[in-house]
Design a protein around this nucleic acid. Structure first.
Lengths: 184, 184
DNA sequence: ACCTGAACACCGTTCAAGT
DNA sequence: ACCTGAACACCGTTCAAGT
């Protein structure tokens, strides 16, 4: 009648994230996750409804980390803070490319937790308001966010093959886009 | 000894694209594709090495269509042409969201045909050169492309839930980003 | 209360056998 | 030369049976 817990939801999500980076989304198999946490595959269904839910939890925890990284980078005067936040997003994407892609380009629709989504937007929204004014804060935040995500997404997809310095292209675009929303 | 061909590569790719939009990437099954073209699954392997190659062909043909749509929209004076091209990308993404996502956010790396990739960049690069000058043409093209892809990608991912008019946000960002690369 | 082996449906892929 | 049924390995998921 006892019932020793041999794993935890946290360990399962953590194993799935490690597998995602190491083997890609296709490598995040219930069996592979189970192996990593030292349990048989059917046992995972005690903590997780199915694989889709597990992937959703990976997305959520990745978003949380990204939000933390942005928040940590975004201090100081608003213009510099926004630039540092943008570079933090790019650095995060380089460190965990599979996770970043999964968050911003879900194959089938993921259940985004509104709380997590909202929290990660707050910092950018505040900076945008300071730079573009309250009336255009949301539009300005969307513009800079779209540009950063688009740039990094294309970079990860290998879409920049016409040569040129990609680091320089990022700084060029960052400078232009931030300037564009400032004199709003 | 004869050998009646009961399908073709074109029909197979076309069936895969229809399935992609109707059922999502997971619905693009070798069996489902085979059913649509009126053949058994093993027969597909006469025209296609495996499922990954088939998905790659879907990406390629989708990119070709997108390039055609951009080219068709991008006439007239450069600034208006660039804006129309950007709206054409967004319209294409709304018509074929699954295809668009697959192109710009491949789960595992897709074999991008450099020819197709290059051709679709040429128009934007030309317009960028006219607006930003030859020295910054590539950076400017990357900036506008990144913003459009990022905006549309976030829109498709359902990342715009803080309210506000998304159409207006697009026009706001488009205006700002185009202006930002012009006075370069 | 959690864990497991066995089982099922489904999928990608191969291959020998048909025409 | 293309098509097919049969077969294999693998995966997600369920469930009755263990402790």
């Amino acid at each position: 009648m006892p019932a020793p817990e041999r794993t935890s939801l946290e360990a399962i999500v953590s194993a799935a994230r490690a597998l995602l980076e190491a083997e890609g989304l296709a490598g995040v198999t219930m069996q592979a996750v189970a192996d990593r946490v030292g349990v048989r595959a059917p046992s995972l269904y005690k903590r997780v409804r199915n694989r889709d839910e597990l992937i959703g939890l990976v997305v959520e925890s990745t978003m949380r980390d990204l939000g933390d990284a942005v928040d940590a980078a975004a201090d100081g005067e608003p213009r510099g803070a926004l630039a540092r936040a943008a570079r933090a997003v790019r650095a995060f994407a380089h460190e965990r490319p599979a996770g970043f892609r999964l968050v911003f380009a879900p194959g089938h629709d993921v259940v985004l937790d509104p709380d997590v989504l909202g929290r990660s937007s707050v910092t950018v929204l505040r900076l945008a308001a300071e730079l573009a004014g309250d009336a255009h804060a949301l539009d300005a935040a969307r513009t800079i966010t779209a540009w950063v995500n688009g740039f990094v997404g294309m970079e990860l997809a290998g879409a920049f093959r016409l040569g040129g310095d990609v680091d320089e292209a990022f700084e060029y675009g960052l400078d232009r886009v931030v300037a564009a929303i400032v004199d709003g």
